[in-house]
């Protein structure tokens, strides 16, 4: 496993998906909302909580808001949360080769 950087806690999960209409990356947040920034995502510490929330996220998918929601591992340190794996880290920011595009550039697709 990729290890969390020093100072980051382990075993945390958030839910992510892409919006159906735009394809934009979104994160499942309070009140079952979908946010464009991972900072607004609800962080689940317990597996049961995460699974229950995923069921609600799947209902949002069935209603045509998002496509294929899934759980990912994140790490948290200081006030920041970031995905553990490179794939999700890139999804949360935008292409690493185009800092001028994507969430990292303030674009919400």
């Amino acid at each position: 496993m990729a290890r969390p950087a020093e100072g980051f806690a382990e075993g945390l999960r958030v839910i992510t998906a892409n919006r159906l209409d735009s394809g934009a990356v979104v994160w499942f947040g309070p009140g079952d909302s979908w946010a464009h920034r991972i900072a607004a995502a609800t962080i689940f510490e317990r597996a049961e909580e995460a699974e229950a929330a995923l069921e609600r996220a799947k209902a949002a998918a069935a209603a045509g808001v998002v496509v294929e929601p899934y759980l990912i591992e994140v790490v948290r340190g200081d006030d920041r949360v970031r995905p553990l794996r490179p794939r999700e880290l890139i999804r949360s920011l935008g292409p690493s080769v185009r800092a001028d595009l994507g969430i990292q550039a303030g674009q919400q697709q």
Partner: peptide, 28 residues
């Protein structure tokens, strides 16, 4: 029909792929 919810993703996916449309990391 997909946006209105008449088609599910499972039903729509092959239709969009027939038109060269993929869902990638950041967008379609």
């Amino acid at each position: 029909r997909r946006i209105s919810g008449e088609l599910t993703e499972a039903e729509f996916r092959p239709l969009r792929l027939m038109n060269g449309l993929y869902l990638q990391l950041h967008a379609y």
